[in-house]
Amino acid sequence: MALIETFHLSHLPSSYAVHAALYRDVQNASFLRQQLLSGNTEFEYAFLDATSIISTMHALAAAFRATNDFMNNRLRSRNVHSETVFCLSPNNNIADSFRRFGVNDTTTNLLVIKICTGGEITTDGVRTHLSRAVDGAAVPFIDESLRSMTDLAKIKKIYKIGTSNNVGSAGKRNKSDISPTGSQMVLNGNQAELKERKELEVAILGLMALRGAT
């Protein structure tokens, strides 16, 4: 049974809902992709490869921008779902964004996003359809689930972060623990790793926000 998390994202009209469902061990990725490509209207979702997603906020941020652009008649792609995939991208290449973030034939970790603007589709409706359509193990749409799926190296490569002069935030944070009065906590290894992940996340959000600015 699908586990649907439904969000009414801040600032979007109350009739707008963003539904998210996360799956492990998906067996029918190619089938789902095929439905998308053939434009099957029952399959109007954003199907994302979860290994490219660093956190729940990462995905929701994309949904938010896509919806805002939709509300302002600024879609660069076909619909708000394809736009959600595109909004994850750091650049304007739509085809690339599908390759990097969209479901591909070998996807086993799948994040599904459904954006409803009119309130006609309910959480139950989404749950029913996805339970039928996706052949995989539903897991809660929370950061812990995503953490085990994320391919950090791939993400860093996509967003071009984590090279020598970019988010070397571990190096930066260390400065704070040589302060003479020891007014900063010294960060242990695990905390440093978590900090680095957070810096990566905000860097990604910044890139997504600035995408397309000329």
């Binding site: 921008r65 302002n72 972060i161 190096g171 905000v202 959000l205 910044g206 926000a209 600035l210």
Partner: peptide, 15 residues
């Protein structure tokens, strides 16, 4: 932020 300076992170933007 990318260079490690302490500033608020950018979340979203509509220019």
């Amino acid at each position: 932020r990318r260079e490690g300076v302490n500033v608020p992170a950018v979340y979203a933007l509509d220019w």
